[in-house]
Structure formats: structure tokens, C-alpha cells
Amino acid sequence: MIKVEGVTYQIVRQEILSDVSVNIPKGGVTALIGPNGAGKSTLLSLIARLMPLQTGTIHVDGQAIGQTPSDTLARSLAILPQASDIAPRLTVAQLVRFGRYPHSKGRPTPACLEKVEEAMMRFDLGALQDRMIDTLSGGQRQRALIAMSYAQDTDYLLLDEPLNNLDIAAARHLMKLLQTMARAEGKTILIVLHDINYAGAYADRIVAMRKGRIMAEGPPQSVISTQALAEIFDTDAHVVLQDGRPLVMV
């Protein structure tokens, strides 16, 4: 479980997060939604220790963020970086192998190589394994990065707007893969999504934020409603139910 308690975060005296407390239960896909500037990415970065905590505490499986050594956390928590971050020329196989670094410290064991192999297969990267990542399409690159996080083999995976620049087929494929990882392997996936329909269709739980506060949390059909969208996003989009899942008429 990810336990966030009383987290406040300020950037030059402006409050990005105001006394946020939320629990992300273990297992399943939790989507973080909210308007731009709601503090979703900040919350994700704080959980992933990319920024130092100011006030409040965060625990991941009982390990306190900020006190647990970073390389210990790297074995239970992974964050998917933005695809544009990668500068070096690495092949897909080399990139995925770096996912094992927290476990192997650069000296991969047979078990590590097996996990890398599994990640390559799982994300259908076999044919691309010797391609340089800077020659891949946006979707392929995203897949390579997720395979790297998969090889890291952590119980928790955080993703910050992974659907950016993906076409509908790639986006659906990715969401299905995440769903499978959560269901078949008991992974806990926390994902920032802009498109509420993807959140409604694939997430088990939704946490909605606005102006640095948690506005609502729960299963999609209870969080996403015409009234809730008006409150959270200041927009009058109509929500219908389709096969038990909420669907926003955009």
C-alpha cells in the first residue's frame, strides 16, 4: 500500500499540494485525474522520491520515503520516465537490461537475464532488440521504457501521462498490458491520465484532484459523473454509463 499522510508541498510560497492524505491499496490500477495544475505530477514525483518531501509522510509498503535508501526503494518502486528524457544511444536490449541495475548493480545474474528476456517478449520487442532507441517511433520507445520498468520487477509502478503521443491502438495496447500486469501479477499501478475515458475504462480505482487537494476517490462509476466533472474540471461534459463503465461525451 502507498500511504500518503498530510503532504503539503510549496514552490516559491505557492501551495501545489495542500495537506494531501490518500491511500493507494496494493494491487490494481489506480488512475490519478484532475485539471492541469492540480498537483498530480507533483504527488507522483514525491512518491517516487524525485523531489524531497517538505511536510507530511509517504510510506510504500511501510518504507518511509526520504529515509529508506534509494537503492532499496528501487527494488520495490519504479517510475516510468518521459520518453523524451533518454539521450544516450542505447539499443532496446541494453536499455531494458539497465532496468535490472537495482538488483544486479551491473553484474547481471542468470535470473536477471531471464527477466530481461521475459520483458522483451512480453512487450513484443524481440524484433527491435538491436535497434537504437533514438530510431524508434514514439510508441515503440514508450514500449521499450515500460519493458525496462517491467524488468526492474517492482511491486509498484508509477506512470506520469504515458499516453501522450500515442495513437489509439498503442494507447489501448499499453493500458491493457498494465491491466494484465496488475491482475495477473498483483502489481500496484498508479497512473496519471488526462483522458478520463481511459481512466474510466481501464482503472480499478480513481483518485481525483483539484488545486492540490483530493476531491474524490473510489471505483470509476462512483467518481466519474456529470456532476463530479463539473466540480473537478469546471466543464459541463455529460457522462453516460456504457456496460457499467462511465463514458464522457466529449
Binding site: A74, I79, P81, Q82, I86, P88, F98, G106
Partner: peptide, 20 residues
């Protein structure tokens, strides 16, 4: 060398992989 290669991938990946 591995650690320099990881640093070359940026701060997010470095922290994510537990690098100091």
C-alpha cells in the same frame, strides 16, 4: 561505467534505478 551511462539518461532514470 554503468553508473555514468545511467546518469547520461537523466536524473529521473538515475533516481528511479536507485543511483546516488
Amino acid at each position: 561505467a554503468d553508473q555514468f551511462a545511467i546518469v547520461g539518461m537523466g536524473r529521473t532514470i538515475s533516481v528511479n534505478l536507485g543511483l546516488k
